[in-house]
Write a protein that binds this DNA or RNA. Sequence first.
DNA 1: ATTAGTTGTCATCGA
DNA 2: AATCGATGACAACTA
Length: 907
Amino acid sequence: MSSDILKTMLYLKKYFTEGLIQMAILLSLCGVRVDVGLEPYLPPSWHEMILGPTSAVTQTQFHNLRNRLEDGHGLHPKNVDLDGYFTARRLLGWVRSLDRVQVPHAELETWLVQREPDPLPMECPDQPSLLERAPAAVERERRDPSVEPRALHDNEEGTPGRGALNERGQEEEDEEDNLARMQQFYSWTEGGGRPGGSYGRTNRELTRNEEDPTSFSFEECLRLLDETFPFTEEQELSDVGSRSGELERHPPGRNPLLSPIILSNNPSLDLELCWQDLFAIMEPENTDVDDDMMTSFDHAPDSRPSGTPWGVGSAALHQNCNSLDNGITDVDQEVPLMETPVQHGLLQSPSQSVLEPALLPLIPSAELDDHSSALNTRDILKNSNMNTLHSPPDHMDLLGEDPSEDFCMGQNAEDNSSTLNINLLAQDIVDNMEASPGLQYDLYPEDTASFDVNFHLRDLTPSSSAASLGGNNMTEDLLTSPSSVFLVDKEDVGDDDGLPSPLSDLLVDAAILDEMKLFDMALEEGFSPEMAARLEEEGYLDCEVAKRDTGRDDDHSVSVTEDPREPRSHQQDGEEEADSDSGLSLDFSHSPASPTASETSYYSSSSSSSSTTSSSCVSAVESPYYEDEDEDAEEGLVSSDMEVEVTIKQEELEEEEMGAVGGGFPENVKLFSANYGDRKLLNGFPWLEHIGHDHTYNQPWSSTSPPSLGKMPTKHTKSSQPHHNRRHYHYSSSRHISETKMWSRDERRARALKIPFSNELIVNLPVDEFNDLLTSYQLGEDQLALIRDIRRRGKNKIAAQNCRKRKMGVLLGLEDEVSGLRRHRLRLLREKQDALRNLQEMKRRLNTLYQEVFSRLTDEDGRPLDATEYMLNFGDNDSVVVASREQEAWLPQTGEKTSKKQRNKKK
DNA sequence: ATTAGTTGTCATCGA
DNA sequence: AATCGATGACAACTA
């Protein structure tokens, strides 16, 4: 290609090699394998080390850019969009796989320890602490975390049958569970008012058990039960009480449930208390207790000889373990979860055995209770989350993203710890961080995370939903309100049936953002005009501008290519609008205020379908750069938008030889532009201000802030260059094409009627100015009518674009809402199953207790009472009556058969 | 040639 | 009453 392309590539190379390496490192630390197209520039070893063999996230974007640069202007603008679209789809798919396979186990564990009663208790044991895992194991999990851990556990447990699990199903389950846990973790974080009671209690439990893991079992569970639950339902007693069990006497201290009552042989045993505990457990929410309980249940058999009464229970438990998988699968696949009670009751037990050794010892109470502790990764993470929690309200929308970000980063940092020297990044990010491998979360201080998040929100939220509409389902993200964001985040993270998660989006976004950041950096350090122009053609600079808080409404330019996301909320729109007001600081200004900008869009829109979007970003009109670059460069001197416009028109007219407008027309326009366009149009016009607040998407001027008088020309010169470039591109690429195609119908009409000002002016001027404009010229009726039509059509065109954008946003928002509701439903189903499981477990324990009680009750002959023949009736005044099933009460001590004689039980 | 998506335009309504 | 924005409907265009 031409030499300037080569120069541009060299220029790019510099920034790519510097910035991209950093980005690649960063992304690699995040666990994202990055291929930024640096192969030519990176030593193979570097490439292999940093970028990894596979990649994607940034590849296409830079690839596109490179292609563009190499190919010159040859690509049709729409190609970019399409390319971006498919790229986005592919990337999203890949990122979603990241979701699936890369779940921050450490964070999950932290969350598991700290979380509230878990609606998904069965998943807890699946995540052994990373801190205890060997690096190799971690690495293995990084490669395939979804399957490996389970397999590992299976090996550890030696549970037959689990190996037969459907790996895919298990993977999905893990993904879903992990995400769900993340979500809950963050919802807990977000909640601010974390229910400290249960949290503290849980910590205490775990801590205590850490000291003596073997003692963590039934005693703990019972104590938890005692502390936690009120005694409520009595009905279940009779239901379960009739169940027979072959429980016998248990060794003291080994039957936590019964020992206080029975083993002490104390006549004053408070059986009722125990029952209260039992019933209290039935309360659905206490899943942590349930976890503990399950753990104890699972471990109790291990510590006692087989054949003991508990052995029976454990046997039953393990028997039910076989059905566990089915149950889990059903749950995760959103199948209505009404399996048999037995299944529900024991879903969790098999994996719990893993939990105890792996998880419990790792959580000292100090760490858990002290939220400000930064002694380990968990605490760091937690702190970051807590900080996020306390972020100002205006950042509330960020909360939804932060967690995922943190998770992603944290996890990836951990994952890469064994293969990549994190210190590489550490210096870039945090100067004073402690470079201990255990402190990898320090690599991602809050500001970093927030930067990314902000970046994401600003730059990528506006993105289009083309990819998502393409069937990738990657639509859920930001809803229209912070709360909605919360909802999504809370609920999204996980559970769903192939539903994307913020994590995915974040990953993609992070890559894109970093990329944009690179461009931004390059721009700040001095992009060559040509490069800038070309970048802008591809919409990169738009992103860049957006990133700089210019608040440009570039969504379109960015969107089509990269971002599969989002229902962009109006709130965010407003935010962006607000940002746009401050966007003046940019050197590189789109100067959308210039009326010619939309004319540009007119030009390009007729020739390419997607050009409208880019033109909005490229709204700037004329620039010296353009002249440098423009091969034609007929219109050498361009001092104002109008001039450029006129020049363009003239040039095209000359080429077309339509001639009607030629001759003295340009002078007219120039005069007008000098007197009117530059001064009045561009400075402090109310419509500019209005534009600053409207939510238009495609309006080229909508994204601009009211330009100041002094700034305007400069900005225009600088920003206009892309436009020139684009226009030139059109000319050079399609010169042979009929020029008429480049003109909109109204343009042609206007030229035919010798309308002395641009359509952009006609369309964008406020009413007053527009009327002034009309009166300032001697126009014929047909001209006036045409001008009004042009104005009407132009405004309606923009309105239609905005309307469609809005509609799309609403659609995506609804999709998100649907997915969120679906996840909510899933969660409720899980909670329901948890409750059922708790209930079943309570019934089982009650049955056990019942049997034990009856084993200690004798009839007049000293024979044990048969639980199948007698039942316990509870009176109002804390009295318990042993009654026969035939409604015949019987008093064991006396042996006499009485009706309704009571035997009080001391508490 | 068909089809789906995009975009512009018109008509209409409500503010 | 005029203007403007929003939106449904339609047509043209494109891939």
